Simulated scan of single mutants.
Amino acid sequence: MISGYLAMIATLLLWSGFFLSLRSGAHSDLTTADIALTRFLIPCLILLPLVIKNAPSIRSVPTRYLLGMFIGCGLPYLFIAGSGMKLAPVSDGSALIPGTLPLFVSGIAVFLFKQPLSQHRIIGLAMVVVGILAFLSQSLGHLNTELLQGHLLFLLGSLMWATFTICARVSNLNPLVAAGFISLISSFILIGLIVTDVLPSHLAATESKNWPWKELLGHITLQGIGAGVIAAFTYLHAIAVLGAERTAAFGAATPAIATILAIPVFGEQPAIIGWLALSLVCIGSLIASNIFMKQDSSLLYEPPKFK
């Protein structure tokens, strides 16, 4: 259990850096495709030998779970989260993606795996819903369609990440193998889209000597190495040790960390309603996790046997 908690702490710090990096990239000369390259190409190259060695294990996983992992953590997720960061501040994105994760994971567990919800968890999830409504009230109240679009993209991103969380749980793949597989597929598709000019790339159209190397190194460190390799391992290890719902609930700490860091970095000071919504989501997620209970009921189902 201790290794699971330590892995989740490391994941929270890396996740916070991930959101800050996305926000920085959304307002730079780099395109979303450029950010995606730093996110997936580096871990793809590092983990490729491991993926090749474990190809039989990957092929034994049903396609639906591999697809769920790719959509929920690969290129589609990054584009959804990156697009949201262009429209809304870090505090909103870091709250609505990891903060609402327990809500979506619990929903999947209830509807697909028939898991019961304790009263403790229901209360926590209800607070998360109120927090979501408080976030949405900021855009709806001021008729800010751009902010509303950002919030809806963040919620979609959270649903995608919940799908990844469940699929990773039942796939039983080694964390680094799963991370390498997702990076490999994402890199192939991304390079194909850039080469065919479907996605614009500042790096592809610029000579290497004119690349913004300082900014690129920051994204490579936070996106490629941090989120792509280290966080992928620590998060999937936490899922294996703590369970999917409890691990998802620990993501509630990410909004607070990322929001505090965004204040000096980007000068983004949330309004009072923003702090209130953030608090509701964080506290609700912690309550829903049952981490203060002696007995943990988070996703006690046995992973389904592959057919």
Rank of each mutant, 00 (worst) to 15 (best):
P255F: 01
D92E: 15
I108S: 05
R39D: 14
G68M: 06
Y5P: 07
L78G: 01
L66N: 03
H202N: 12
G107E: 00
F233C: 00
R169I: 00
H142Y: 08
W275Q: 07
L153E: 03
L217N: 09
S183C: 09
A253S: 15
A271V: 10
L37Y: 06
P98L: 11
G124Q: 12
G192S: 06
S94A: 15
S139C: 05
I9V: 14
D92I: 15
G93T: 10
L37F: 11
I9K: 04
C73W: 02
S28R: 14
T221F: 09
G72C: 03
A178N: 03
F18Q: 04
L156R: 03
C44Y: 01
L87K: 08
P200K: 05
P89C: 07
I182V: 15
H120G: 05
L101Q: 02
F135I: 13
L278E: 02
F164D: 05
G251W: 04
R23M: 07
A95F: 14
L48K: 12
A7W: 09
V265Y: 13
I182S: 02
I257A: 11
L103R: 08
F18N: 07
A262Y: 14
V170W: 00
A162N: 00
M8L: 15
V177T: 11
I185R: 01
T38F: 13
I230Y: 06
I2R: 14
K307Y: 06
F164N: 05
F181W: 11
A249L: 07
G274M: 03
G192A: 10
L299M: 13
Q115M: 12
I182D: 00
K209N: 04
I52W: 14
G25V: 07
L190G: 08
T221C: 11
T254H: 02
L276E: 02
A162G: 02
L190W: 01
P43I: 06
L261Y: 12
V198Y: 12
L276Y: 05
K114L: 04
S24I: 01
S60I: 08
L125Q: 13
S83T: 14
L133Y: 08
L48M: 12
A162L: 07
A271T: 14
S139Q: 08
G192F: 14
G226A: 10
W211I: 03
S187F: 09
A256T: 13
Q149V: 15
F19H: 08
L276V: 15
A232N: 04
V90S: 01
P49R: 13
L30F: 11
